[in-house]
Write a protein that binds this DNA or RNA. Structure first.
Length: 392
DNA sequence: TATCAATTTCCTGATT
DNA sequence: AAATCAGGAAATTGAT
């Protein structure tokens, strides 16, 4: 997700080559507008959610520790209070989300605050941002609507002016899933990259391939900054390890040395979780005993079950047979990675996990058709008339 | 603490 | 040539 151009966690790692262009365009622009500042300690209180209902909180700038000031996350601020930087972050995010060619956007048009942005009509947006204008307008409307108390229903709406819930009673509305993922990711990666970029200047780090923490290459990794929220569940990103160990000054890093000895090579397997010490320090987001959460196939299924909201990621080829196709394979992988707090997820890796489902008959092979899969007899919830996993 | 399921990562080779 | 598929091997995680 592009959230902040100069601390963009995902660009250039998991996305296709076009994203590099996007990344560089926005990075350059951000670095011009916002020279690096020193990272401050982040209040974990400001970041952790409050319960298993995945409460997400918007904050008013300046009210919540250093976070809002330093991190500048547009998702945590109501749109009409966005600064210029928030606006840029948000545009950058939408550019990435839609795989838009950032070079087609006149960045000087982006120089406005949230108040001004909110005054723009759909036509204005089209004029300013071309084909992306509609998307921006719709997304902004969506964000603004979040501030409007919803009609009373099963979803809790307390404190709705500043928060929204993705509660157990009302799960899996795709937009909420998406926003939840984005917001959560924002909390996870936004701060990290803020620190990375702030401490390292323009140096970008591929989050998918962290430097060996003890290697010469990684010794350049700057780190005295403190940080940050951390999901308690698995799959802390590689960057998690580096940043935390660096920032904590620990020296108990595994002295691994991959067999080939190649520098900057990550080792196999899931990214290592941070150690207990840093984990305590950093505060975890989820309960130690929280459920594992949806499996990959359920995640895929749930996207498919929200056709209006799945953003062209996947489509049914034959709904009655459970045949579906990836339309934007890398975007789906990216989203899956966000859900798992893994910024280096790719379609290649996701597809490996999908192939493991063949044996378990959660999926069936569809020979000769690229990007096409079929739900198997051990999957559920996708059939018409099934009691799906979605809905209240 | 050990074990397990479910990935995640890396890899080589084949196919489209 | 690049993307995707296939599947082995090993690593890691959270759950039990």
């Amino acid at each position: 997700m592009v959230n902040n151009g100069d601390r963009n966690p995902l660009l250039g790692s998991t996305m296709a080559g076009g994203s590099c262009v996007i990344s560089s365009v926005f990075n350059n622009y951000f670095s011009t507008l916002y020279p690096p500042v020193q990272a401050h300690a982040v209040s974990t209180e400001a970041l952790k959610d409050r319960d298993s209902n995945k409460l997400l909180t918007f904050t008013i700038p300046g009210t919540t520790s250093d976070l809002s000031a330093e991190v500048c996350d547009w998702e945590q601020v109501v749109p009409h209070m966005w600064t210029q930087r928030h606006v840029l972050d948000w545009i950058s995010y939408n550019v990435e989300r839609n795989k838009w060619d950032a070079s087609t956007i006149d960045l000087t048009q982006c120089e406005m605050d949230g108040q001004r942005l909110c005054q723009l009509s759909r036509e204005d947006m089209r004029t300013m941002f071309g084909g992306l204008g509609d998307t921006l307008y719709d997304h902004l409307s969506q964000l603004r609507d979040l501030k409007t108390p919803p009609p009373s229903n099963s979803c809790d709406s307390s404190d709705y002016d500043l928060t929204f819930h993705l509660s157990e009673e009302c799960p899996s509305e795709w937009d909420l899933i998406y926003d939840y993922i984005q917001c959560e990711d924002n909390l996870q990666f936004g701060v990290k990259n803020e620190i990375e970029s702030d401490l390292c200047g323009d140096k970008t780090i591929d989050p998918g391939y962290y430097s060996d923490p003890i290697s010469p290459a990684s010794s350049e990794f700057c780190g005295s900054g403190s940080y940050s929220p951390q999901a308690g569940d698995s799959a802390g990103s590689d960057i998690d390890v580096d940043i935390k160990t660096a920032s904590l000054g620990t020296n108990n890093l595994p002295s691994y040395n991959k067999s080939d000895g190649a520098p900057n090579r990550r080792r196999r397997g899931r990214p290592r979780k941070i150690n207990a010490e840093s984990s305590d320090f950093l505060e975890t987001k989820k309960s130690k005993h929280s459920a594992r959460g949806t499996h990959l196939w359920e995640f895929i299924r749930d996207i498919l079950l929200q056709p209006d909201l799945n953003d062209g990621l996947l489509k049914w080829e034959d709904r009655s047979e459970g045949v579906f196709k990836f339309l934007r394979s890398e975007a789906v992988a990216h989203l899956w990675g966000q859900k798992k707090k893994n910024s280096s997820m790719t379609y290649e890796k996701l597809s490996r996990a999908m192939r493991y489902y063949y044996k378990r008959e959660i999926l069936e092979r569809v020979d000769g058709r690229r990007l096409v899969y079929k739900f198997g007899k051990n999957s559920s919830g996708w059939r018409l008339g099934d009691k799906g996993s979605l809905g209240c």
